[in-house]
């Protein structure tokens, strides 16, 4: 492996989305974003809906929106298990707004707490997605 690089993998349940060597990735952790460089402490974290940024040199080469999931970090590797992932440039504003309003409608119909929590999560995902689209 090249010096100063880590192997970054982005995996969804249906396929391996991305696997490449990068200098740094910034991952939206549950308790705040964190950057991963080579020789990072081993760590497992849950993710909140947000944007993963791949850095090469001083520029961001890739921005990918994830709707939550898990990240596993070792000194040489960073693996992100995402439930839903889409490149920021490919987010469809119209569809996302539709999703947000659908979710808000569902919130009014939610009967019990479990359902409410699920719908609130969907709203949070849609809101984060809109924010990422800018």
């Amino acid at each position: 492996m090249a010096e100063g690089k880590i192997a970054f993998e982005l995996v969804s349940p249906e396929r391996l989305l991305l696997s490449q060597e990068v200098e740094m990735v910034v991952v939206p952790g549950e308790e705040g974003d964190f950057g991963v460089l080579e020789r990072h402490t081993p760590m497992i974290s849950t993710l909140r809906p947000g944007v993963i940024q791949v850095h090469e040199g001083s520029s961001v080469t890739e921005s990918i929106f994830v709707a939550g999931g898990f990240a596993e970090v070792t000194p040489v590797r960073c693996t992100v298990l995402a439930e839903e992932a889409v490149a920021v440039s490919e987010i469809d504003r119209g569809a996302t707004e539709q999703r947000l309003s659908d979710a808000r409608d569902d919130l009014l119909d939610a009967k019990d707490d479990a359902e409410k929590v699920a719908v609130e999560r969907r709203i949070a995902v849609a809101e984060a997605m809109l924010k990422a689209a800018g």
Binding site: G29, E30, E31, T41, P42, M43, I44, S45, T46, E72, T74, P75, V76, R77
Partner: peptide, 13 residues
């Protein structure tokens, strides 16, 4: 192989 050498993961949260 991962360079962990038995190191323990940190968990967040």
């Amino acid at each position: 192989e991962e360079g962990l050498n038995g190191a323990v993961y940190e968990y967040e949260p």
